[in-house]
Design a protein around this nucleic acid. Structure first.
Lengths: 137, 137
DNA sequence: GCAATTCCTACTAAATCGATAGGATTAATA
DNA sequence: TATTAATCCTATCGATTTAGTAGGAATTGC
């Protein structure tokens, strides 16, 4: 299941990308338009800022803005920030690898092999989709 | 994240497929060999039986067996039983469709579009992988 | 009848999710 | 400089899900 955090995050990013203008977009506006609880959205945008996808301006007339062109914001990056590892098991994760405690031999593990395939096919989608693709349609 | 239930279930199915023989395989044996809590595994195999993937024999010398040849047990079926919907959001699920309450227009939803792609690519993997593939390697 | 097995129901501890609350900090502007 | 409006930060909380555990009923082979 996709978490609400990710769902809200993607919608917010799309909203910001669509706004186009240079002036930052405020949390309140996004929350209102996209029907997202404002306080929850605040924390989501904050994490997107901390990882460098968004920039922010504080104080009056502040808000959030994209730090790159939407066509350069890849879903691999966004999904890892919002949803965490793309792999379904840590032992096939490229960025968050961890050995399974219960699995003695990774090379002979049937789950491992299957999940590598799932990871690769999902990755392929995320690598080929940018925020521009999301906001265009 | 893949649930332990699914992981254990896949390992157990692989174990049964590898055993090859006609005599049913006992929960205790699988639990011991694959390091899975026995009582937990019982409930997992039970759900696989109820959906027709496994058959069982009760009483002494009882156990579980495959109802089809491993090459006919597709991961689509197994994953749906163990892990639930393959789609990451209900609004793109083929078998468990539900409209998003918070999303007024599905056709204009950027999340929707992205998740359809992820669903299709994952489905492609599961459609082309059978229990035979898992147990062969 | 006894032993070994699946089957069934109920319970529980821990983790995660989806928020909410309250205020500190910063910046524009009157 | 005071006010206002925004982001930033920390803490808390209820509900749900996960990963089991417990205990025994039902069934079968010997």
């Amino acid at each position: 299941m996709l978490s609400k955090k990710t769902k809200y995050g993607l919608k917010a990013l799309t909203f910001i990308a669509r706004s186009g203008s240079d002036t930052p977009v405020q949390v309140g506006e996004i929350a209102r338009e996209e029907q997202i609880p404002q306080k929850f959205l605040e924390s989501i945008l904050l994490s997107l800022r901390k990882t460098g996808i968004l920039g922010s301006k504080k104080g009056k007339h502040g808000g959030y803005y994209l730090r790159k062109d939407p066509s350069e914001v890849f879903m691999t990056e966004v999904m890892r920030v919002l949803e965490g590892p793309i792999a379904m098991v840590p032992c096939v994760s490229l960025n968050f690898y961890e050995k399974c405690d219960d699995c003695p031999d990774e090379d002979r593990c049937s789950v491992n092999k299957l999940m590598i395939q799932v990871r690769d096919s999902t990755l392929e989608v995320f690598k080929n989709t940018t925020l521009k693709d999301l906001s265009d349609r």
